[in-house]
Amino acid sequence: MTLSTAKQTLISVQGVSKRFGRKRVLTGVDLNVEQGSVTTLLGANGAGKSTLMRIISGLAKPDRGDVVLGGVSLRKAGHELRRYIGLVTHAPLLYDNLSATENLAFYARLYDMEDAAPRIDAVLQAVDLWSRRKDPVRTFSRGMVQRLAIGRAILHDPPVLLLDEPDTGLDPASAELLADLIRTLGAANRAVLLTTHNLERARTWADSVSLLADGTIAFCEPAASFSEQSLRRLVIRVDRDAQDYATEDDMAPDLVGEQVAG
């Protein structure tokens, strides 16, 4: 199994549906992310962003539809395809009692990385944790944990990067570091799909912006033209779920702010 290096669609979500009990979370999601591009996925809490991320990463199975990564179907592929995926989730996926280096060394072994030490050192420097590399993760602040989680996701240099709210708990400086990293990854021909609750970041970090609402992609356009007009459409589109937004504290400030501005 080899992923071609030609410019191509690396992440292709094809008609993915998922329900929990009778509650339909995703109803036929189609989404493409090309090599060398960054896509932001917006949506209210509970819209299914994380579920979609979990399905693309293979942690959950779609009821219908398929995910094709670099031309290889997730349904048909064996576990080797997971090698090409890097994921940042709400949980940091780190072991509290192990040091930053030990955590990364553990993952390097799971990903069959040969002679991983220089790579681990470089990643630790890239996420600005070099000075704390020998300390157990349980002594880290939330922002440091989040940075290490990002370092963990890029450790094996995956062509497909799924970042589910990677900016949670990051201070402005760290967020800037993350922005640089995402830009670099895009420039280095990776395909990045990220979610965030911050509309400004959604626009400036990505090449295109998609909105997940009512279980489907309601909206997808280039980040450059994603502005007040599209935002108005966005707000109108999700207006039916207005009550949802009103109750979501972390979502409301960004959206309401933009809405008033628009």
């Binding site: 090698r83 990903y111 040969e114 790579r119 470089a122 990293l181 670099t184 990854l185 420039a187």
Partner: peptide, 13 residues
């Protein structure tokens, strides 16, 4: 990789 994290050694698996 290029850019700020250019120093990252390539991954060999």
């Amino acid at each position: 990789l290029s850019g700020p994290i250019q120093a990252l050694p390539p991954v060999q698996m």
